[in-house]
Amino acid sequence: MTRSDSSLKPLFGWAAGLAALILLPFVINTYIILLTTEVMIMGIFALSFNLLFGYTGLLSFGHAAFFGMGGYVTAYLLSHACPSLTLAFLTGVAGASLTAIVVGYLSVKLDEIYFAILTLGFGMMFFSLAHQWRSVTGGSDGLTGLVVPRLGWGAFSVDISSPWHYYYLVVAAFLLTVWILRRITQSNFGLILVSIRENKERAAFTGINIRAYRLASFSIAGFFAGVAGGLFAVFDRMASPSMLHWTTSAQPVLMTVLGGAHTFFGPVVGSILFFFIEHIITKFTDIWMIYLGAILIPLVIFFPEGVLGTLLGLKKRKHG
């Protein structure tokens, strides 16, 4: 293979992915459009989680805190007559990022199980807060019935309450997230994160300020979790405590392990599989979690590096 071929190959992959996402609405029905939109939002959530888990080596069990914060702030502004969707959304993302900086500052000095438990604790705290602080959060009902303003200004605005329009907005957000996170993971900063994951001690004695890098990673992860949360609240027309529940924190963990933590697109593949499995099973039974467990166990056993990670590993071994 010549050099130009090999440098064009990834470009081809990107183009194919882009074309598929743009053309998808022409061949599928509304239900699948909604499902794909949700898969992409959760894909953003899982990708943000994996910057922390797969790249920095920190297993957070409280990532829903930032997803929920993004969702609640966006929903709060929209339900209090904020005229601009962009403003509400960006404030939500800013709220999630600030929360992540504070929670991260208090958490990243801990390791492994202690870090996991502390983040779980913070996550549960935000859940309780949303549950109890009725005047602001709407309590267990959440903030419901959001009216979504048009996106943009005057003549240059679109109504995104149509599933198709919203689908394209989410496609744009998804691609932008993928592009930015991909660049970050391949940058100097990203390489330092991986060295911290691989050997924290060696990294420190090489002059790397572990806490500072972990905090930066935690904050970036919180930012993109906020993006996912804001998009989800607009998608669902509501923000509810379930967005902050620990089971929501568990979703990106499951998706990432399912798809592969050490492959950039692993969490996206995991997100697709997760929704695919969920929606197939719920057609037959309500207790879908039991069946999900029964499917997850063999997947984890036979695909130790996640489905995508294991397949890419096999391909690599075959070719060289």
């Binding site: 940058s187 100097n188 900063f189 390489l191 991986v194 691989e198 050997n199 002059g207 790397i208």
Partner: peptide, 30 residues
């Protein structure tokens, strides 16, 4: 004590990045 699953060059690159204080470069491929 090395960065186990990384390549030999990546091990050295990490240390070089740390030495040059270049870890705040978020976008250019390392």
């Amino acid at each position: 004590n090395i960065f186990t699953s990384m390549t030999v060059m990546e091990n050295i690159l990490s240390a070089l990045i740390a030495h040059h204080g270049a870890g705040t470069s978020f976008f250019a491929p390392a």
